[in-house]
């Protein structure tokens, strides 16, 4: 049975996949200081959101749904489902999607995405490795 995108099972798998990604870790401008909380959501779907916490370039918590207050979040990033799927399955590049306006920063410094663009790209690619089969029809 396919794992539902942004479900807790998916979040657990994505966390393992991302934390195992050396290209992601090496892609940070400075992984040792990359400690923050962020949200990823689906445009037009307030019910589809996940919150995660980073500590020194590794994810320590990834929750399906809202976990933190908006004030606690450093970044709040949204895209439509098709864009997330394209990024997760390696058909799109994070930087290009950002410049095309497909990935939107609802909150947070744009400089963070620019300086960590390589890490962001590999992080988003790890989403596609969260499970053997992912159901994006949620």
């Amino acid at each position: 049975m396919a794992t539902k995108f942004f479900s807790q099972e998916w979040c657990d798998g994505a966390m393992d996949a991302a934390n195992a990604s050396e290209p992601m870790y090496k892609g940070f401008k400075k992984a040792s200081t990359f400690t923050n909380k962020m949200a990823f959501g689906v445009l037009g779907r307030d019910d589809l959101v996940s919150h995660l916490e980073w500590k020194e370039g590794r994810i320590v918590s990834w929750t399906s749904g809202r976990q933190y207050d908006q004030d606690e979040l450093w970044l709040d990033i949204k895209a439509d489902m098709e864009t997330w799927k394209d990024l997760a399955e390696g058909r799109a590049e994070a930087g290009k999607m950002l410049v095309m306006g497909k990935v939107k920063f609802e909150k947070g410094p744009m400089s963070a995405a620019i300086e960590n663009a390589v890490a962001l790209h590999h992080f988003l690619q790890s989403w596609g490795r969260a499970a053997d089969e992912i159901d994006y029809d949620v």
Partner: peptide, 19 residues
């Protein structure tokens, strides 16, 4: 409805003037 590059450049400039 601004295009993506206008949005990213505008956001970047705004945040740069703040920082």
């Amino acid at each position: 409805s601004a295009n993506g590059v206008a949005t990213i450049v505008g956001t970047l400039l705004g945040q740069n003037f703040e920082n």
